[in-house]
């Protein structure tokens, strides 16, 4: 009797893909330990130099910039994502909910380039925002959004908002409405019910959404590249620059590796926090 029909057939394609993924990961690892020979695409001998190079301030600064971008993006995305998710679930009109869902989700399926380009038109010195503010007489000179951290954060918040709203909405949707009704029945007002029942119970969703917002922002390339324009240097833009401008692929590899280790460390902290919250058993 075959107890596990198709096991071989079904595992093989996935196994081949896994081999490819593992091999490309090993390729990065291998390159990160090889010397860069200027003017040559092929790497030289074994060395740890790439990792000592990463200790230079320029690279440390890219890490700090990236972390700050991740932090501000996650914070602002949560701040505007939560009310949106909450309103989406609590509206009584199905029509309004549908419209909110479609508006929120559309950016998710647009890709980074379209979204970033749209923001360039909004934020540019002759862009929509500055023209509008100048036209209304609110400012005398255009505000520089382009090539600034603020501009990049605005576009990144827009970039991460859909996924964060979906995750928050799923978390809020799974809170038992009876708990809120119980709080109302005990005489709590709407603000108090929200602050003492709804918000605390959506903490797991908030943690999960922040972790995803972090991963997405860390991975973002087109936005910091196009809006940052070389002035806001993140790990992603630096890897691309080191690789395709200097053709120093060993250094690009070690930088990616360092970034990856950093991502894993941060996501592990999120996971740990998540587990601690779950262990308290309140959810």
């Amino acid at each position: 009797m075959t107890k596990r029909p198709f096991l071989g057939w079904f595992v093989t394609p996935a196994g081949l893909i896994a081999i490819g993924i593992a091999a490309s990961f090993l390729a990065i690892l291998q390159y990160s330990l090889r010397a860069h020979v200027p003017g040559m695409l092929d790497p030289g001998g074994f060395t740890f130099d790439n990792f000592t190079t990463l200790l230079k301030p320029a690279y440390g600064k890219a890490f700090i910039t990236t972390v700050l971008l991740c932090f501000w993006t996650a914070l602002f995305t949560l701040l505007i994502g939560y009310p949106l998710a909450f309103a989406m679930l609590r509206t009584r009109s199905g029509w309004v909910r549908g419209a909110m869902l479609i508006i929120t989700l559309t950016p998710l399926f647009l890709g980074e380039v379209v979204r970033t380009y749209s923001w360039i038109i909004v934020l540019g010195n002759q862009g929509f925002l500055n023209s509008a503010l100048l036209g209304l007489g609110l400012i005398d000179e255009p505000i520089s959004f382009m090539f600034t951290t603020m501009g990049v954060v605005i576009a990144l918040v827009h970039f991460t908002l859909p996924i964060v709203v979906i995750m928050l909405a799923a978390a809020i949707a799974h809170i038992d409405r009876k708990l809120e009704q119980a709080a109302f029945s005990l005489g709590a007002g709407r603000v108090r019910v929200f602050l003492t029942v709804t918000l605390p119970l959506s903490v797991p969703g908030i943690v999960a959404a922040s972790s995803t917002a972090f991963a997405w922002t860390f991975s973002a390339f087109a936005t910091p590249q196009m809006i940052g324009g070389g002035q806001v240097v993140t790990i992603s833009t630096l890897v691309y620059q080191v690789g395709f401008a200097s053709f120093n692929f060993p250094l690009a590899a070690s930088l990616s590796l360092a970034g990856l280790l950093f991502t894993i460390a941060v996501l592990s902290i999120f996971n740990l926090g998540m587990r601690r919250i779950e262990r308290q058993g309140a959810y």
């Binding site: 490819g20 490309s24 390729a27 991975s219 390339f221 690009a252 990616s256 590796l257």
Partner: peptide
């Protein structure tokens, strides 16, 4: 899901 896309791209390029 965890590895940034630029790392995936670079890895496959080097491979």
């Amino acid at each position: 899901l965890v590895i940034p896309n630029f790392t995936i791209g670079l890895g496959l390029l080097i491979l």
